[in-house]
């Protein structure tokens, strides 16, 4: 990530929102999608992505399905009903955070 500390707290929200938009995704696909959407500005590291995915799965926000693709198995993640609800909450939290930061760093735009 370009500034990992700033983005770290939003990693779960990023994952949830991507899955909200794309139904089901696998780990590598998420890293590439984020890279493409941010034009290479944000690069999610593998060491951060998988622990985050496994944590969200453990919390019951993500469901998993393993399918055979080409000549190997692929693990897909998708949102559970709780995950879909949580995505809305997380996005609201993020929007509030951005608004607060805007008010602090650039009061004219807030």
């Amino acid at each position: 990530m370009s500034n990992s500390k700033l983005y770290k707290g939003s990693l779960n929200t990023i994952i949830l929102q991507l899955l909200n938009q794309h139904n089901k995704m696998y780990g590598y696909e998420i890293t590439q999608k984020v890279k493409a959407l941010t034009k290479g500005e944000l690069n999610i590291t593998e060491g951060a992505l998988y622990p985050a995915l496994h944590k969200l799965e453990a919390e019951g926000l993500l469901d998993v399905e393993v399918a055979k693709v080409d000549n190997r198995l692929r693990k897909y993640y998708k949102l559970t009903d709780t995950g879909t609800k949580e995505t809305v909450n997380k996005l609201e939290e993020l929007a509030d955070y951005i608004k607060t930061m805007q008010a602090l760093v650039n009061p004219k735009l807030a």
């Binding site: 590291t45 593998e46 998988y50 622990p51 944590k55 799965e57 453990a58 919390e59 019951g60």
Partner: peptide
Amino acid sequence: KKFGVIGFGDVIEEKTKALNKRYHH
């Protein structure tokens, strides 16, 4: 190399924690 200096160490540790958490949950 993209997995960092400790390789898959973090992934193993966090996956174990996550599975335990799911169990407790």
